[in-house]
Write a protein that binds this DNA or RNA. Sequence first.
DNA 1: CGCAGGGCCCAAG
DNA 2: TCTTGGGCCCTGC
Length: 106
Amino acid sequence: MANQPIDRFKSQVFHILSEIPKGECIAYGELAKLAGFPGYARQVGSLMKNLPKDTKLPWHRVINAQRRISFAENTDGYLRQKEKLEKEGWVIVGSKLTFNENSIKK
DNA sequence: CGCAGGGCCCAAG
DNA sequence: TCTTGGGCCCTGC
């Protein structure tokens, strides 16, 4: 298509996303930046939105810069992401995402 | 061609 | 911690 840069951007995003190891997380902005398109955070969100349910990409490891899940708590997207993250050692502390390294801080 | 909106980001209060 | 307000880029109507 005409949007080659964007097309590459998408590919990069998906690639990077697939390379994210368990226990790691990345912000939309960071992801976009690594993809070579700093400032395209919103587009990353659009891509996530477009992801199929059967995707094997760890989209749940993508969070916002505030280190929070960008969904409202009453949405199933939030719940799904939360579950996956918790399985990988993440914990929700006051709406904030925190990595549980062996033991939660105090 | 303009406008609203999105899994955003950042700074203030 | 939450709410505003500005800016970021792209898509859809």
